[in-house]
Design a protein around this nucleic acid. Sequence first.
DNA 1: CGAGTTCTTGACAGTGATCAAGCGACGTGG
DNA 2: CCACGTCGCTTGATCACTGTCAAGAACTCG
Lengths: 242, 242
Amino acid sequence: MTPDTFKVACSNCNLRELCMPVGFDNQDMKKLDEVVAKRHQVKQGQMLFANGDEFTSLYAIRTGFFKTCISNEDGREQVTGFQMAGEIIGLDGIVSDRHSCNAVALEDAEVCVMPFANVEELSREFPVLQRHVHKIMSREIVRENGMMMMLGNMRAEERLAAFLLNLVQRLHARGFSQSELVLRMTREEIGSYLGLKLETISRTFSKFSEDGVIEVKQRYVKILNPDALKKIFNPQPCHSKL
Amino acid sequence: MTPDTFKVACSNCNLRELCMPVGFDNQDMKKLDEVVAKRHQVKQGQMLFANGDEFTSLYAIRTGFFKTCISNEDGREQVTGFQMAGEIIGLDGIVSDRHSCNAVALEDAEVCVMPFANVEELSREFPVLQRHVHKIMSREIVRENGMMMMLGNMRAEERLAAFLLNLVQRLHARGFSQSELVLRMTREEIGSYLGLKLETISRTFSKFSEDGVIEVKQRYVKILNPDALKKIFNPQPCHSKL
DNA sequence: CGAGTTCTTGACAGTGATCAAGCGACGTGG
DNA sequence: CCACGTCGCTTGATCACTGTCAAGAACTCG
């Protein structure tokens, strides 16, 4: 096996269990490596793909951190998601063969390029991969349902608490701390994601900090009282029966 | 061909071009009929599936009108979509083998039950069906991206204008009027969908009516000035270059 | 070190929520 | 056919949360 093929092999990737299905034997795994055509570097601030670009591939994030966002005719921007290692982006492009959002690297990143034709072809051969692709898309649908609940029903504090808990949970699944994180995005980007203005994000951080729930210093955040955060995110109705 | 098989055949369904892929020859079409196991009636107010139900099937709406909604631990409800004939619901269940939302019939309805195992099996055999399933899921992701933009960035009037335009456009694609519609949902359900309260929906309807943009009488809505609605939905920045 | 970006904080304003009351439509049963 | 009750809708008055505008501080990076 040459160093080259070694480099792009899913079978040797430490993120495999995050972005690929389990239950493959070694022989299948070799075939699965064909999904990934190559790797691609994206510098901080650069776009992996942009609204209107032809859709050819899905991308599995190997390292780095992305945001996806859409923008209006009148210039308003909505961040639709933040993605980290092991997550898949580009699903938006399937329906129209063109991407409908921008994917911007918030730090230097590397992605595995998975030509969608390969994905579909191997999906026909491997039911477990087919199921996996379906699950990834379904997961994104369910995530966005949750976002609709946030944006439609929750107040600023609840949104930010939910955001922090979600972020730290995903980082923890990747071996990082359960209580400390460094934000890769600005207050404005958090605000866009949560349907709030950057000043509101800043104020809410300050309030959480005053209440001793978190410690904030610029991009660094330490969660001091996770239970308090969970309570903010999911306020129990007083004297709830049962 | 017995009347029974005739009844559930996609090949004879007038909604085929809405919910099934094009580009099938007659022979393939016969096989494709195997996707649909049976039809199922849902009375107004009944649930097709509920949060927590085991996921087994996708459903293609033949007649009727549905809402899908999720609810919080503390009882807040978010309508995540309204679905009409030719649209597919149930995609939320794939990721966890359980549904994560409720699907409620807003009028008496009939759905085609498509066991997901059938869908996956036939998808492996027919690339055109496989691609179609992927597109349906991607379309839902893109729709929800647009909802995030609405909920995160738009004001009440813009949301309601966008909602009406979207609804009438989908109805028109099904052969109904471009300008008149009968709402199948309450003001409260519209509000939940749009992240607003029912009073705001009512007030905004009244304002549109006073401005001569629409005519409203309870559930009946007539769009008098579609251009004005589009302008509300998508306000051009003053003196926009180009 | 300096320019530009990002963040914080204050004062004030505005949009939509909340609370409240009454109206209108619809369906049922007398 | 009409009385009545329920549910959905409208409208008004007031309030609260978040947005807007502004100024300055802190941080980053060339």
